[in-house]
Design a protein around this nucleic acid. Structure first.
Lengths: 203, 203
DNA sequence: GCAAGTTTAGGGGTTAACCCCTAAGCGCCT
DNA sequence: AGGCGCTTAGGGGTTAACCCCTAAACTTGC
């Protein structure tokens, strides 16, 4: 039931990739290695619980650019940045972009493993949250404009009579839109609808 | 109506405190300076929209320790760390603790001003959010155990009859607890209650 | 232009929620 | 021992919400 989490390793140094693979595999983690940022971006599976460990200095796209590209592509995958020749501005740039940690080589294996577990915990938490909210958002965006409007007012705690007055339509019409919205959202009561829209950030 | 935000400066170097004061005052910001972390912790006003700019190396408590002490005390004040002699682990520690930025001296004034504005925007956003949620939490914790139980089930979308069955009590009793809970929470409808409890993270 | 979907509106009945009242049993504290 | 607050429960009435039905005006797209 608990799927194995994946640790993606991006480093142009073959020896480093292999050494990290040997370090992490015995921990029961699935390890996938890539020699370049481009290779990772086009080949990794977006639907797994995973984290990314990337070197900074690489031919082509750097680890920091990879991190930013990943975020821009809408991924929330936790990232750990490692580097042989780091400096303060580089570390700050990585951390401001949301990295879990910025670790200098030679790597402290225990620290790296700890950070990887932290990253995977975060990845699980984000997947669980997204698994709750994404379907709600999808159903919400499938509502018609009027249904959204009515649903938001219901969720804000207005009663049908008030909504009819605010929108300048009849009580009967509000009842229709409310019923259709709750049907499409899979809500059984107004409170249920309110919980969903609040979770989705619609109100 | 818009209260002036405060920039707290903590640095043991008199010249640096004065220079930052001269830099920031003309921007319409209220500046308060402290020569030590302890002086800041015991003298600053917790109720203002504010950010903290702190040096790392100081006699007594360091800037990093100050940041961690502030977080431990429950403050969400955004922190900018500045330092004359920084290194990568120090920068990472500051950023992992949640600092907005870690800036090395000599300071780039434009960058610092930009980060201070970013920090104050964040402070305003956090105050606005807390201003919504804190009173809800307070009212929620003022409910009796049974009222909380009923309120959570209402907010989860159950109807009174189901709640009565789940709790093994009569419909009439559920109606009483529901009414009292909604009264104490200031909710006008079940949807209103659901929105509040979802915002407060009670369900 | 017709088909499909959206928005609008009503009739009429059932169920759930809300509001007023009383009231008993229980634990806790002064 | 009496008061206070919480929990429990009911009677009885009003209002709001829900459910089934029809149906017209309007937009969008093939």
């Amino acid at each position: 039931m608990t799927e194995t989490p994946v640790v993606h390793i991006v480093d142009d140094d073959d020896a480093m990739r292999h050494s990290l693979e040997w370090l992490l595999k015995p921990l029961g983690l699935e390890v996938k290695t890539y020699a370049s940022a481009a290779s990772f971006l086009s080949n990794h599976d977006r639907d797994r619980v995973a984290c990314l460990v990337t070197d900074v200095r690489m031919p082509g796209m750097s680890g920091l650019e990879l991190h930013e590209a990943l975020a821009k592509a809408g991924s929330t995958m936790p990232v750990i940045v490692i580097t042989g020749h780091g400096d303060v501005p580089m570390a700050v740039r990585a951390m401001r972009a949301g990295a879990i940690d910025f670790i200098e080589k030679p790597l402290n294996n225990q620290l790296l493993i700890e950070r990887i577990h932290e990253a995977l915990r975060l990845a699980r938490a984000r997947r669980d949250e997204a698994g709750q909210i994404a379907p709600i958002r999808a159903r919400f965006s499938a509502l018609t404009a009027r249904e959204r409007e009515v649903a938001c007012l219901v969720a804000a705690g207005r009663q049908n009579k008030m909504i009819a007055h605010e929108l300048g339509i009849s009580l009967k019409t509000v009842e229709i839109h409310r019923h259709n919205a709750m049907d499409k959202m899979g809500a059984t009561t107004g409170a249920d609808l309110a919980r969903m829209l609040t979770l989705a950030g619609a109100i």
